[in-house]
Amino acid sequence: MYTSTGFISWLLRRISGVALVLYLFTHLWVIGAANSGTQVFNARLDAVQTPIFKLFEIALLAAVVYHALDGIRLLLIHYFDLTEYRKTLFWAVFIVSAILTLAGGIAILAIMLNGG
């Protein structure tokens, strides 16, 4: 396989995209329980608030942030010739995503540890 920053970027784009779709199904599954009465709804809501799901939330944050920033990068590339800056842009997306995920992740965990 030919590995490169471009390839990693594309791979993460695909993974985050798939992750977001899976999140959507999960979300609909939870919210959709509103049709089945309070008990079912509350049960489902509790199920997705366990500690393991907090980690999934951080992962979701990472996916959203990365996919959005990379999406902006793609828009820029489609409209301007930024070939010269291609590596810089890849790294900018990686780094900013990482920072935002870290910041958000810390906040999420802090809230959880303080009793939700």
Binding site: S4, G6, F7, R13, I77, R86
Partner: peptide, 9 residues
């Protein structure tokens, strides 16, 4: 094309 840019390199 997914703008992976390997071709330019």
């Amino acid at each position: 094309c997914h703008t992976i840019f390997n071709c330019i390199d």
